[in-house]
Computed example of a mutant assay.
Amino acid sequence: MGITFLVITGHFLAYTFVRPILQDDGVDDNMIGVLLLTFGVAGICGNFIAGALIAKRLRQTVVGISAVLPAAMVLLALVDNTAVTAGAILILWGLGYGAVPVTFQTWILDAAPDTSEAASSLYVSTFNLSRAVAGCRGRGGCHR
């Protein structure tokens, strides 16, 4: 649960700054929407890829996500982004983040096979609490 909380909170805190970072790097405003759409499509793909991997490689998938997400966030912040470099980084980030829900929920259900309803409830509560915390700490605060 702790890793879920940290990963989801970290993602939403960082994601809040994607547009401002890209704008500061001079990426055209019209391209930013396309890049964010690309992130979303990569997220859908990440979900399906993780779904195929977790049956045999659950632990490795969790470790991979835990490495890919911070790497993508740091790269986006440190690289002087063009539309191409930002697109590549956002695809990597989208693949990693898209893998989170199916992977982490499976991980939690595997840890508590006899109490799947309680485990699912705790997972969803942790996920939503993470989003709420990130929404209140990210750019713009809780006033959205």
Rank of each mutant, 00 (worst) to 15 (best):
3 I>C: 10
5 F>T: 06
6 L>F: 12
6 L>C: 13
8 I>P: 05
8 I>W: 03
13 L>E: 07
18 V>Y: 14
18 V>A: 05
19 R>T: 14
21 I>F: 06
22 L>Y: 01
22 L>H: 02
23 Q>F: 03
28 D>C: 01
28 D>T: 00
28 D>S: 11
29 D>C: 02
29 D>F: 09
30 N>L: 11
31 M>H: 10
33 G>H: 04
34 V>T: 15
35 L>Q: 04
36 L>G: 06
36 L>Y: 06
38 T>L: 15
38 T>D: 11
39 F>Y: 15
40 G>T: 01
41 V>F: 15
43 G>P: 10
44 I>Q: 09
45 C>F: 09
45 C>W: 03
46 G>Y: 10
47 N>F: 13
49 I>A: 10
50 A>K: 00
52 A>R: 14
52 A>T: 00
54 I>Y: 09
55 A>S: 15
55 A>W: 02
56 K>C: 08
59 R>Q: 11
60 Q>G: 06
60 Q>I: 08
60 Q>F: 14
61 T>Q: 10
63 V>S: 10
66 S>K: 04
67 A>H: 01
68 V>I: 15
69 L>C: 10
70 P>D: 02
72 A>R: 02
73 M>V: 08
77 A>C: 04
81 N>Q: 10
81 N>L: 07
81 N>M: 11
82 T>F: 08
82 T>L: 05
82 T>G: 09
83 A>C: 11
84 V>Y: 14
87 G>Q: 07
89 I>C: 05
89 I>M: 08
90 L>V: 02
92 L>I: 07
92 L>Y: 05
93 W>M: 11
94 G>S: 01
98 G>N: 03
99 A>T: 00
99 A>D: 00
100 V>D: 03
101 P>I: 00
103 T>K: 05
105 Q>L: 13
106 T>Q: 02
106 T>H: 05
108 I>P: 09
111 A>L: 14
114 D>V: 00
118 A>W: 01
121 S>N: 15
121 S>F: 07
121 S>P: 06
121 S>W: 02
122 L>R: 15
123 Y>F: 14
124 V>Y: 11
126 T>M: 11
127 F>A: 09
127 F>V: 03
128 N>C: 04
128 N>A: 02
130 S>C: 11
130 S>T: 03
132 A>Q: 10
143 H>I: 00
144 R>H: 15
